[in-house]
Design a protein around this nucleic acid. Structure first.
Length: 427
DNA sequence: TCTGGGGTCCTAGGGCGA
DNA sequence: TCTGTCGCCCTAGGACCC
């Protein structure tokens, strides 16, 4: 049976269902069919929910406001366990890359696959095979949507997930009738690329579905939703406009954190900012880049209307490109000194680096250059940290005794990445 | 008392040289 | 020499994604 009626390459979007919650369930099977939520760093707000929890908990719900509801409905609450989710994601992606030659890992829990137009395979069977093998090998349930464009494969995936009992979590949009039916069903705010603001704008002019959106004139879309909106319209019409994106090095790297409590003291914030800069430097060295620009920001808790508010950032053009932890930490602290004001209770700070060059292509400046001794020193630090554990080697300006702890009151073990936490099977 | 983190892309608008 | 205009570059900020 020839299913590919568009006679175009087909994209599959494979999406792990409620990924973080599903990861927790893999190692706690007694939680299957029970409500599960996963919280953000610091146990701040809800960032993943199982289907059972979705009835009671909105996305992004602040945990402290929902404690009663958690108890009332026996919701199982987990702190986020990124080493576990990262490892489970790698397993899923490795399996997926065996299904199609071209794959784009779009996020921790989803990937696009591209099937050439000559691959006249039964896509439903292919989707079922993907879902079966991933479930069997990793325990993670997935949904699969096929369509001739990436945006339509997102729509197909949504249908697969929403009507999983009828679709077995696999859906294919491969003719005009299905495309139009799907777009008429999909609410405008659920379209990939239409966020809250734009959805409101569109609702105001009576554009309520994805289909309505495709009926808008190109001029209107270009004017109000920019070139991005125009691309989206083409994609929804079934005209391939976005291709798979190949791996590219990052253009910016950020380390930012909300503090577990407010800090007013300069020295404490300086220690945090130093640590953020060191973390960015490590990530830079991993991708073999140096940075020319660093930004430091600092702000108070915007939710506390009763406290005086202050928020400031500073962008510093560096005199030379560097990936040295020591140099970046120094520039970051210089920046912090400029923006720090006494008397405020700070809740969040961060360091972002951008404007990269390859480490072997950086230009030598006439007067000021990165200290060449740092190159070997940083290599040694990276090797030691990789071998004996991350963060064992620190700068003197980082707090050596204190380990800054996030609130993680409900952290699951790192079943797959820490020997001590591995599951033991009793004979 | 307690509300995440890390990215990308796009545009408007200003400065500036031709 | 003065002025207007065009295009380029840069930056800040908004909007989006997961």
């Amino acid at each position: 049976m020839l299913l590919n009626l568009f006679n175009l390459p087909m994209f599959a979007l494979v999406d792990c269902n409620n990924f973080y919650a599903s990861c927790e369930r893999v190692f706690r099977p007694e939680l299957i069919n029970k409500p599960v939520v996963v919280l953000s760093n610091n146990d701040g707000c809800v960032i993943a929910r199982s289907n059972e929890a979705k009835k009671h908990i909105p996305m992004g719900a602040p945990a402290f406001k929902f404690e009663k509801i958690f108890k009332q409905y026996n919701i199982n609450v987990f702190s986020s366990n990124y080493p576990l989710y990262g490892d489970m994601s790698n397993r899923v992606m490795t399996i997926l890359s065996g299904f199609a030659p071209d794959i784009e890992i779009y996020s921790i829990d989803e990937a696009f696959l591209k099937y050439g137009k000559s691959n006249y395979i039964n896509l439903i069977d292919e989707g079922l095979k993907i879902s079966h093998i991933i479930k069997k090998s990793t325990g993670i349930p997935v949904s699969v949507g096929f369509a001739p464009t990436k945006a339509l494969s997102k729509v197909a995936n949504r249908i697969a997930k929403k009507f999983s009992e009828r679709t077995n979590s696999v859906y294919v949009i491969d003719n005009e009738e299905k495309r139009i039916k799907a777009l008429k069903w999909l609410a405008i705010e659920d379209v990939w690329g239409i966020g809250r603001k734009n959805a409101k704008k569109l609702r105001n002019i009576n554009i309520n579905s994805a289909y309505d959106f495709t009926q808008l004139s190109n001029e209107w879309i270009k004017k109000y939703l920019t070139i991005t909106g125009l691309r989206l319209k083409r994609e929804l019409q079934g005209l391939p406009t976005l291709d798979l994106e190949q791996y590219v090095e990052k253009k910016s790297i950020a380390t930012t954190r909300t503090f577990e409590k407010n800090h007013s003291d300069f020295e404490q914030i300086k220690e945090r900012v130093t640590t953020f800069a060191v973390s960015n430097a490590e990530k830079l060295r991993k991708q073999k880049s140096c940075t020319n620009t660093i930004m430091v920001f600092l702000h108070t808790n915007g939710h506390r209307k009763d406290l005086p508010q202050y928020s400031k950032n500073i962008v510093i053009k560096l005199p030379y490109a560097t990936s040295s932890s020591i140099e970046l930490a120094k520039f970051a602290v210089d920046g912090l000194k400029t923006i720090y004001k006494k008397g405020y209770k700070y809740k969040k700070a961060g360091v972002i680096v951008m404007d990269f060059v390859d480490e072997d292509k950086k230009q030598k400046k006439l007067f000021e250059n990165s200290n060449p001794k740092h190159i070997d020193l940083m290599k040694a630090v990276d090797i030691i940290n990789d071998t004996i554990g991350h963060g064992k080697i620190k700068l003197g300006s980082q707090d050596l005794k204190r380990t800054w702890k996030m609130n993680q009151n409900s952290l699951s073990p790192r079943y797959t990445t820490r020997l001590d936490d591995i599951i033991r099977v009793k004979a």
